[in-house]
Structures are given as C-alpha cells and as structure tokens.
Amino acid sequence: MTSVLAVSGSLRDGSTNSAVLRTAAAVAPEGVTVREFGGLAALPHFSPDDDREPLPEAVAALREAIGAADAVLFCTPEYAGALPGSFKNLLDWTIGGGEMYGKPVAWLNVSSAAAPTGGAGAHDSLRTVLGYAGTSIAEDACARIPLSRQDVGEDGLVGDPAAREAIARSLAALAAAADEHRDEWTDVR
C-alpha cells in the first residue's frame, strides 16, 4: 500500500486545486491511498525562532502527516506570479523538520487556458523550494491539466473523464516513484 499526502495551496472555498486533489483520492489506483492535508489555514506565520520543540500544534500535525506519507502531491494556484503566501508558509515549515528530505513529490497544474503564464511562476517557485527541502521530484507525475471552476461538479469532484484519467495517471506515476524510493531505501538498510 502506498500512501500519498495531497496538499492544496489554495484556501478558497470551491477551489479547483482542492477539487483535483479530492478527485485524486476518488480515482486512486488499487493499492494507493490519498489523504488530504486540511490544515493550511491553521499554520502560524513561519519564524525560525518558533521552529523548535514544542512545535505549534498545526505544524506538528503537518510534519507528522508528511512523515507518515510515502509521497506528497501538491496542487496550487499562482498568485502575483508566484506561490500563494499561505502555501509558501506551509513549505517553509517543512524545511526544518526534514520529513520532506528524499520524499517523492509531484504537482498538478490546473491553471486554465486563460491564465497568462499557465501557472509557470508558481511551479518554478515550487520546484525551487522543493529543491531546498531535498525532495525527489517525480517528473513523470507532474502534469498540467487545465480546468475551470465549471469543471467541478456539485459533489466537489472533477467530472471530465479525460481530466480524471490524467489525474489518475499522475497519481500512478507518483506511487511508482514512491515504491521505487521505498525499494532503494530498503536496499540501503
């Protein structure tokens, strides 16, 4: 069984990014579980002075969730050409704990076709931060799946069959990277 932590970079009600991650949980291949992290809004502003025991409860929950997962899947909007501040704050809290080190990660980009850069600024920033965190980016699992709010049904899931298939493919590629990573670590021990 491979566990994937799904982290949305959006705090917006009705977020397309969050809907994609809920859809990932719904279309997960057999043997893959997806757990959504819902604590983005509860995280305090990052300060290195506070990155010590006892950690704020929301930070401890974030680090525990990352540590328990075999891989992490991100889906974030772009604000002002980069990552949303609250999402960057979440990423800042992951650096000091080390739970992300070596962990397979990927992201889905759902910026609509009308977005001027297609979310490229956010994902360039995300790639930079994930590099500092020492993650293992599963390139085959990163995908651009342009969607709009109209693509999200009343059930909060993406209904378009092609988009659901693309989400499932990305999730399967991330799970494969996690399995390979687990095998590599097993061989080292």
Rank of each mutant, 00 (worst) to 15 (best):
F74V: 09
S148G: 13
L108Q: 08
H45W: 09
G98Q: 05
Y132W: 14
G31W: 15
E30R: 04
R144D: 06
P104F: 01
I66Q: 12
T94S: 14
D160K: 11
A172L: 05
S18M: 10
K103S: 10
T186E: 15
M100Y: 08
I145Q: 10
A106K: 09
A19C: 06
L126V: 09
S47I: 07
F37C: 00
R63L: 15
G153C: 08
T117W: 13
P116K: 08
I66H: 10
S3Q: 04
A168Y: 01
G9S: 02
T33F: 08
P56R: 03
A166K: 12
L55M: 06
S112M: 05
A42G: 02
G134I: 02
E64S: 14
A42S: 06
V27F: 00
A122M: 14
E64H: 09
H45T: 09
A25I: 03
A80S: 13
T33V: 04
L73R: 07
Q150I: 12
P54S: 03
A61F: 00
A115V: 07
L157W: 00
E99F: 05
H45C: 12
I145R: 08
P56M: 03
A177Q: 05
T117G: 06
R127E: 15
D51S: 05
D151A: 14
T135C: 15
V72S: 11
C142Y: 00
S15R: 06
G67W: 12
A60Y: 04
A122D: 15
A173E: 13
A175P: 12
A60G: 11
A172N: 05
L126S: 03
G9H: 01
V188T: 08
F37I: 00
S111H: 15
P161E: 14
A163R: 10
K88G: 09
A138G: 04
H181S: 11
L62A: 02
T186S: 12
A61S: 02
V4Q: 00
V72R: 12
A28D: 03
G156Y: 02
L91C: 07
I137E: 12
G119A: 08
P48Q: 06
S111F: 10
T186A: 15
Y101L: 15
G121Y: 10
